[in-house]
Simulated assay, not measured.
Amino acid sequence: MDHLSRINNHITTINVTLNTEKHGTHELIVEASVHIPGHDLFAMVQTEKQLKPALDMLVSKLEKQLIKHKAKPKNAGRQHHINAKDVESPIERQLQAEFDELVEREVI
């Protein structure tokens, strides 16, 4: 789990849970949740009694999630550009002109 802190040094908590199921086959279930400010990441792996491969797969899943989260820009979504021009349709210009005329005549 120390490897995860090299990818993202803002990790506050990591919780790992180990469970076994004895329904026919003895499966090992490893779950982990990682908390970073603003996000909770979760991963789960099921294997047959092998702890080391299960932990390796779990860390690999969490690494992918951390890398994906780190790659996202902070202000994802639509952004206003400083040099953007306000584009009006001809109908909008006409309606605005009519409104301005009514304001000048003090009708509104």
Rank of each mutant, 00 (worst) to 15 (best):
M1L: 14
D2C: 05
H3M: 04
L4F: 06
L4M: 09
S5N: 12
I7C: 01
N8Q: 12
N8R: 15
N9T: 13
H10C: 12
I11H: 04
I11M: 04
I11T: 05
T12Y: 06
T12L: 06
T12P: 01
T13A: 11
T13C: 08
T13D: 15
I14D: 01
I14E: 03
N15Q: 14
V16N: 06
T17I: 09
T20Y: 08
T20M: 08
T20W: 02
E21N: 13
E21K: 10
E21A: 12
E21G: 11
K22P: 00
K22E: 08
K22I: 05
G24H: 07
G24Q: 08
G24D: 09
H26A: 14
E27T: 13
L28F: 04
L28Y: 03
V30K: 02
E31N: 09
E31K: 04
A32N: 03
S33K: 09
V34R: 01
V34I: 09
H35F: 09
G38A: 06
H39D: 07
F42S: 11
A43I: 01
M44Q: 11
V45G: 01
Q46I: 13
Q46V: 14
Q46M: 07
T47G: 08
E48M: 05
E48A: 07
K49P: 01
Q50T: 04
Q50S: 05
Q50R: 04
L51Q: 05
L51E: 06
K52L: 11
A54P: 02
A54M: 03
L55I: 11
D56F: 07
M57A: 14
L58M: 03
L58R: 03
V59D: 04
S60Y: 01
S60H: 05
S60F: 01
K61I: 00
L62D: 01
L62T: 02
K64M: 07
Q65P: 02
Q65T: 02
L66K: 02
I67Y: 05
K68H: 14
K68A: 15
K68F: 13
H69Q: 11
K70Q: 07
A71Q: 13
A71P: 01
A71L: 11
K72V: 15
P73E: 08
A76M: 11
A76K: 11
G77D: 02
G77K: 00
G77S: 01
R78D: 10
R78W: 05
Q79L: 15
Q79G: 13
Q79S: 15
H80R: 08
H80P: 02
I82E: 12
I82M: 07
N83S: 09
N83D: 12
N83M: 04
A84T: 07
K85E: 13
K85Y: 06
K85M: 09
D86W: 02
D86I: 10
D86S: 05
V87G: 00
V87I: 14
E88T: 11
S89M: 07
P90N: 10
I91T: 15
E92L: 05
E92C: 02
R93D: 08
Q94G: 00
L95G: 07
L95T: 13
Q96Y: 01
Q96W: 00
E98L: 13
F99L: 15
F99S: 15
D100W: 05
D100H: 09
D100R: 12
E101Q: 14
E101R: 14
L102D: 04
L102N: 10
V103K: 15
V103E: 11
E104M: 05
E104I: 00
R105Q: 12
R105F: 07
E106Y: 13
E106L: 15
V107Q: 10
V107K: 12
I108D: 04
I108H: 06
